[in-house]
Design a binder for these strands. Structure first.
Lengths: 232, 232
DNA sequence: GCAAAAGTGTTGCCCATACACCCATGC
DNA sequence: GCATGGGTGTATGGGCAACACTTTTGC
């Protein structure tokens, strides 16, 4: 990157970081990837994976890189939650963090990162989210609000599923993130009749109890119209 | 703000700015506040109002301050659009900008700022938005997408109106921002029957042609349920 | 056969739209 | 009266929730 010369004192210097909210659904619950902090501040506490943006690095690339370094994950799509820049959010220096969220279908790939931080999954439940380092509880809650909204109008639920999934698995994503129960029959109709949301593969998943369910894959739709409404 | 000592070379230094998308509806059209750039880069082009965040300043406070300095406006509520940080978005240095949007009811207060930049209103129309400095076209389009969404589920339309307004004026906000025509009768019922959206003042606006309309003020609702659906 | 899970059909209600109609003013 | 804009009433149709019912497996 080529730059013109400029006076380094002409603007106040900030550090810029990225933090990533990696969400996953399994065992009918919602989980978030966290790493243990190995050094002060907040040493020993859990935090969201993240780190400094390099001088010539795109924000989203930085998020992808930090996520791979700290958790071994390479998720498909990152979506920005927003910028968090309260003057005292980091006691060491002035830091503005740009937060992203992403969905992971399969978190067996989660491992501790190259810098020896312990990576783990935490259940997203009341009480837990208040124990994160920095303002990461705030970031997580903002991300959750966005995801809950996004499930209504955009086909993001399929990102929580493996490439081929059953309608019941898809419903489980909604139920875990919305913390509700949905009518299986009505959900099945609504989702399969929504143009472009899911596509049939004409294959079945064998091995479970009961009638073997059909397998679907994500369709090309960018919007869900009409939106799936969240029950009260 | 008290800080521990730290090595200034331990993280890459960034500049952090804020940019503000001030939107307003008048004469059945949507307008955005812009300022003329008085110095390079992009000298002479229009840009969104904005500027550097001070070392101990909250991001939203910085947006409020810059807006007052450059346009004389003091809008009620700022909402974050997101962070924009492509490595080459500013040719001088690495800058991450945090963008906000806000609504203004009455832009007669718009004036050129203390630093002698010309402040003006630009009609939001196809073609115009491509001529802004930096990546401000991108920021504006993201803000517009957010506002169009927000109109459906949150009572943000009243922020575009003066403290007392008519239902027709409120409908004009929706029509200008969505670029559609809404049925006056159905809109009136939907809006007045939505709990907490608008409250009657039992006063009338005199002076126009036709039957004098009733005046309303914004109600306490935080969400519009069910959402106002945008026509195709 | 029985239980369990997947998927389909049916019914009734709610509500949004389309549009006709009435109201209150200026001229 | 007539035009203009504000506001209300009404009927029809589509969609969604509730829930009964059928299908297909394991045991």
């Amino acid at each position: 990157m080529t730059r013109q010369v400029y006076d380094p004192g002409a603007y106040p210097p900030f550090a810029v970081t990225v933090d990533i909210v990696v969400l996953s659904v399994s065992h009918r619950r919602l989980w978030v990837a966290v790493v243990e902090r190995g050094s002060p501040p907040f040493q020993g506490l859990w935090s969201l994976p993240g780190g400094f943006v390099e001088p010539d690095e795109d924000l989203e690339s930085a998020a992808t890189r930090e996520l791979a370094e700290e958790t071994g994950l390479s998720p498909s799509q990152l979506e920005q939650v927003g910028a968090f820049g309260a003057p005292n959010r980091d006691p060491r220096m002035r830091v503005v963090s740009v937060a992203y969220w992403t969905a992971a279908a399969d978190l067996t790939a989660l491992r501790s990162g190259s810098d020896a931080k312990a990576a783990s999954l935490a259940a997203v439940e009341r009480g837990f989210t208040e124990q994160l380092a920095f303002d990461h509880s705030l970031i997580l809650n903002d991300a959750l609000d966005e995801v809950r909204e996004a499930l209504q109008t955009r086909p993001v639920a399929t990102r929580f599923c493996r490439p081929e999934f059953t309608i019941t698995e898809l419903r489980g994503v909604y139920e875990a993130i919305w913390n509700t129960n949905l009518d299986p029959g009505n959900f099945h109709k609504k989702v399969t009749e929504m143009p472009g949301f899911v596509e049939p593969t004409s294959r079945l998943r064998e091995g479970g109890r009961g009638r073997p369910p059909e397998l679907y894959r994500a369709g090309p739709a960018q919007r869900l119209d009409p939106p799936l409404s969240r029950p009260d």
